[in-house]
Structure formats: C-alpha cells, structure tokens
C-alpha cells in the first residue's frame, strides 16, 4: 500500500516537474547566453496557455494542436521581445535596462490579458483529463502521459540540438565567449535571437500543459515563474542539466509534501531548499561544471 502511494506520488511529481523544467529551461538558456533575465517569461507561459485554450475550443477539442499553437505563440513573442527590447538595448551596452524593460513588458501583457480575457478563471478541461489508466494500483490520466511524452521529447530534442548540431555548438560558443564566436564567422545576434525564440517557445508550450493543472487566469504564469526561478537557482544559473534535475526534484518535493505533510507547506519546503542551496552550494546542484553556461 505504501509502495503504491510512493509510486503514485512519484508519477505526479514527475508530471509536474517536467512542466517546471520546460518553463525553467527557457530562463536558464536566456541567462546562459545573454546573462539577462526575461521577466516577461511568466506571461509567455500564460499567453501560451490561453492560445492552447482558444485553439483547442475553436478546433473542437484538438488539444495537441493547442500545444502546437502555444509553441508558435511563444516563439513569436520571443521574436518580438528580442527585436523590441533585447536587441536595441544591447546595442546601448547597458545591462540593467533590458531587465527593467522586461518587467515593463510583463506588466503590460498582464493588463492586456486582463482586458481581453477578464479576471474570471477559465476551466481548461482537455479531452484527455478524464481518461484514467490503472497500472499496479497507481492511477494516471492520458493527460499526464501526454505531458511526460511531450516534455521528454522536447527536452531530448533540445539536448541533442545543443550537443550535436553545428548551430547548437555555435550557441554554446556564443554563451562561453561572444566576441570570439564572432571571429569564427558566427553572427552572435542571430544566435541570441534563436535562443530567445527557443526559450519563449518552451514557455508557451509549458503554459499549454500547465493550464489544465493550474487555474487559468491572466496571472497564471506568475505563480509558476517564482518556482521556475527557484529551480534555475537550485540547478545553477545557466546550467541546462542542473535545471532539468532541479525541476524534477521540485516537482517530486511538491507531490511528496502534499502527501506526507500539507499542501500549504509546499512553498516553504521549496524555498527553504533554495535558501539552503544559496547558503551551502550557491553554484547549483552540478557544481563541478559550474562555470559552464548552457
């Protein structure tokens, strides 16, 4: 019986954790390549969720197409924030301005969504939430299977892209030494654009799969992003492998805290861990490679 409960909570934790990983990876990629933080990332999550919601309903329950729509909306938002905020401010050479500007973008997007979608929470029911499987005493929905499959595939593709393709290696080169990457014939601005587009697409996609779990309001992303920041710090800023590990860890902590302690204690446990990490291992979980960005 206890083994079943542990297995059940492990599944729940991994489902939640893989969504956190999608959102946190975007933050960590942008930090790794640009040494910048995109505060509007949270709103890209929310907009991805709304895009998935509306596309799914317009197409009569095609949730998977909703996920694709969220990915595209996220990518478009990333492209837009790069040409309006990151690229022009980078030319000015000030490091603080982009950070402040993304806070501005975030406030703007939240209020725009409030105006369009209203403050009343949307019930995001996918056709897969009701399909329940039972395996060896544990329950899971088709929705969780989709979440795990889509997240795992996305993360694996991203990893392979970074590790094995010319463009992925160029992206890591830009993260490690932007000027020298330019000397290789790599246009750093193109790769920075690519990084922001990928990161934002991940955010949108994460939103599409988080929304059925959370309460979908214009502020849905904001509640996730704080945890995503904690994950990025626990994993080591800019460290992709650390972020994946930390995301899953936080997901598991949440589900086991819910089971054995109290759901109200989740944030206390997660942020307690964050404080401990900052105090004793500020470079993150995988600290042998602490200087590697991306």
């Amino acid at each position: 019986m206890t083994a079943t409960i542990v297995a059940q909570q492990a599944i729940n934790g991994i489902v939640l954790g893989s969504l956190y990983v999608l959102v946190a990876l975007g933050l960590t990629l942008i930090y790794g390549v640009l040494v910048q933080i995109n505060f509007a990332h949270a709103d890209f999550v929310t907009l991805g969720a709304f895009a998935a919601y509306f596309v799914m309903h317009a197409l009569g329950g095609q949730y998977l197409l909703g996920i694709v729509a969220a990915l595209l909306v996220g990518a478009a938002l990333g492209w837009a924030i790069n040409i309006t905020v990151f690229a022009p401010l980078r030319r000015k050479g000030n490091e603080l301005l982009p950070l402040i500007a993304t806070i501005g973008v975030s406030v703007m997007l939240q209020n725009a969504m409030l105006a369009w979608f209203g403050p009343v929470p949307y019930a995001f029911e996918t056709p897969y939430s009701q399909k329940v499987f039972r395996v060896a005493g544990t329950f899971f929905t088709l929705q969780s299977v989709i979440i795990i499959a889509v997240s795992a595939t996305t993360i694996a593709l991203l990893y392979a892209f970074m590790k094995f393709t010319f463009l992925g290696k160029a992206l890591r080169a830009v993260a490690q030494d932007r000027e020298t990457a330019g000397l290789m014939g790599i246009n750093p601005n193109t790769l920075i654009m690519l990084t922001i587009v990928i990161s934002s697409a991940l955010a949108g996609m994460g939103g599409a799969m988080l929304a059925p779990v959370l309460v979908l309001t214009p502020f849905a992303g904001a509640s996730v992003i704080v945890k995503a920041f904690a994950i990025v710090i626990i994993g080591g800023f800019g460290n992709v492998e650390g972020t994946i590990l930390a995301g899953l860890l936080v997901g598991l902590i949440e589900s086991f805290t819910t089971q054995y302690l109290d759901p109200g204690l989740i944030d206390i446990v997660v942020f307690g861990l964050l404080l401990l990490m900052l105090a004793f291992r500020p470079t993150g979980l995988i600290s042998e490679r602490r200087e590697e960005n991306v």
């Binding site: 890591r172 490690q176 030494d177």
Partner: peptide
C-alpha cells in the same frame, strides 16, 4: 586573439 580564447567547455 591574445590569451588564446579557446571555448573552454567545448
């Protein structure tokens, strides 16, 4: 460049 500037983690 001076100081070599290899990409250290590649």
């Amino acid at each position: 460049p001076e100081g070599r500037h290899v990409f250290p983690f590649l």
